[in-house]
Amino acid sequence: MSEGGSGKWVVGSGNGQGRVQGMTTLPASTPRRVRRPSNLLPMLAVAVFAALIYWPVMLFANQGAAQKALDSGADLGCKTALACATQLRNPVIPAPGQFWVGMRSLSAQPFSATAAPYNALVTGGETLLGLGLAVVVGLALATLLVRSRSFERATLPWLVASQTVPVVALAPMLAVLLGQAGVQGFLPKALIAAYIAFFPVTIGMAQGLRSPDPLQRDLMQTYRASGPQTFLLLQLPASLPYLFTSLKVAATAALVGSIVAEISTISFSGLGKMLAENSRASDTVALWVIMVYGAALGIALVALIGLLERAVTRWRPVA
């Protein structure tokens, strides 16, 4: 890697916000907070519009598939392609009725072992545990990065590069190796989630730990604060907003990690296990239902972190 390459990764020292922000995002600097009218009406309009074009698109897509099947001599139990479009067993896009039936059958008893809500909760738990682990590792690494320049110079380029490695491709192998070490069940999924999430957290925390300006540092010095005191009282609180921003970025990635880990290891529950099962059992409608639950879980995780952030920043004396 060229000099420009390695010099570029320096975490936020000097110029406030370093280049590394590229791999994560800065805390949202919302410009001009103006009280705006509620988004409810426009959102509703967009939803209605989507629902309106959904029907013809679904009919068009399924009709084509049905026509092909009929042409190849399949007996679908219906005569014309249009009639078959809403009752294909493996629809391109499920008809609302089909989706609703699938939704009900997978959610009717929300806490049975085969129900989607239960499995979503399992996956959510794994992801949260993984995020927790990522925060611990990220804080440790960030502290090292901030405190030791040789550590930073030796590892930072590779920490950045590690983000371009398709970690999910490694997940099955990681799971096997963890299995050898006797780590099974809930934990391998959380560890893989943590592995995917640690980087944004590390970089975010490093930026955060460096964010206090020299003026604040000087103040701490005039108070004769020790190194650890400065760390605890100034740097750590200052890094909190950065932590939450990076956690939001990490949450979706970690969720992908735990789902992939469920697919690729021995799993008795989780959305990934449902995904693997249903994709092999030819249940297209179930895949759609699981996608909706996966989306909801991703949104819920980010919302949860947002709530936590609000609680913590409210508690913080300075915004």
């Binding site: 897509a61 896009i93 979706t252 969720l255 992939v260 989306a295």
Partner: peptide, 29 residues
Amino acid sequence: RFLERGLLPYAALLSSVPIVALAPVVIKA
């Protein structure tokens, strides 16, 4: 502005959809 207020909240929501849940459905379709 109407579009922004109607569309952007969905964009923010949809950006946290895990790709592994999306991929099987899109590939099937």
